[in-house]
């Protein structure tokens, strides 16, 4: 039950959406883009988000693609997470999103909504960070393709009115050896204490982490530590821990110290698993 009122628009093209946003802003309104809308609905209810105009992106065909060509995978930002799972095109992403919320909620939560959301876990971005994917952004000059590393730093970095339309991932990456481990406070339900996504690309381990800090990240210092050839898995994990960004979360899911304990064990397990694979 949302205590405030808003208008609702459902544009059919990228241009229409972008122009709507600008004309509404110029008219002194506070528009937001809406795809699954789960955060807008739930945070709005408890006065943690306000808008007076909602622009629903679900009706824009580009935002609903799930398409694989000879070189790339294109996924629309307004695809529900269950659609990403059922498409079975990106194994790491599939495993990753299966850990988000719950199955029914994932019928509504979208890929773009998770990546661009206010709730800071944004776990679905990890596979894209690891794969050096590109984002298709709608802006004033129409669509542009940008490296994820240029537009995602802790959270999506967009100019007012810009929005995420699609992700583009190189096909080669889709078959990279990978794991996605989400560790929870207790048993199988809830937000992560930490989520780690990892993949081997060109014999180097890539790591993305969510739930440790109030943002998801991929850190080259951390990866350098984990790829240090002379060290044992435990030593690598230990070294990687010393390169984690700040601040480490300390909240109702876990204390900061415990998060690092869990992370270290998780990293060690991943290293051991990949070493095993390498030996085979």
């Amino acid at each position: 039950m949302i205590p405030f009122d808003f208008d609702y628009f459902n544009p059919e093209t990228v241009q229409e959406a972008y122009h709507l946003y600008h004309s509404l802003t110029e008219a002194g309104r506070e528009p937001v883009y809406f795809s699954g809308g789960t955060e807008i609905i739930t945070l709005g209810r408890i006065h943690q988000l306000y808008t007076d105009a909602v622009i629903d992106l679900k009706g824009i065909p580009e935002c609903r693609t799930a398409q694989l060509d000879d070189e790339h995978l294109y996924l629309g930002a307004a695809l529900p997470l269950t659609a990403v799972e059922e498409a079975r095109l990106f194994p790491l992403l599939m495993k990753n999103v299966k850990e988000i919320a719950d199955h029914t909620a994932r019928e509504k939560v979208t890929l773009g909504g998770n990546i661009c959301g206010n709730i800071f876990y944004r776990e679905a971005v990890l596979p894209f960070l690891l794969s050096d994917s590109s984002f298709v952004i709608a802006g004033k000059d129409g669509l542009k393709v940008q490296s994820i590393h240029d537009v995602f730093e802790e959270h999506i970095q967009l100019a007012p009115g810009e929005f995420l339309v699609q992700t583009i991932t190189e096909k080669n990456f889709l078959t990279a050896p990978h794991v996605n481990i989400k560790r929870k406070r207790q048993w199988d339900t809830g937000y992560p204490v930490v989520t780690v996504a990892a993949a081997i690309v060109g014999r180097r381990l890539r790591i993305g982490i969510s739930g440790l800090c109030p943002f998801p990240f991929r850190s080259y210092e951390v990866e350098a530590a984990l790829n240090e050839p002379a060290l044992s898995p435990e030593q690598k994990a230990e070294l990687a821990i010393s390169h984690m960004p700040a601040p480490i979360l300390n909240d109702s899911e876990a204390s900061a110290e415990y998060r690092l304990f869990v992370l270290k064990n998780t990293l060690t397990d991943i290293l051991v698993a990949f070493e095993g694979m390498g030996r085979r």
């Binding site: 609905i41 629903d56 029914t104 909620a105």
Partner: peptide
Amino acid sequence: CLNGDCGACTVHVNGKPMKSCLMLAIE
């Protein structure tokens, strides 16, 4: 919960399960 956490409001939309607290009526 009106927060998508409990599932007590689940309905079907086109045959798929949907938490009706996470969907605007206009949608």
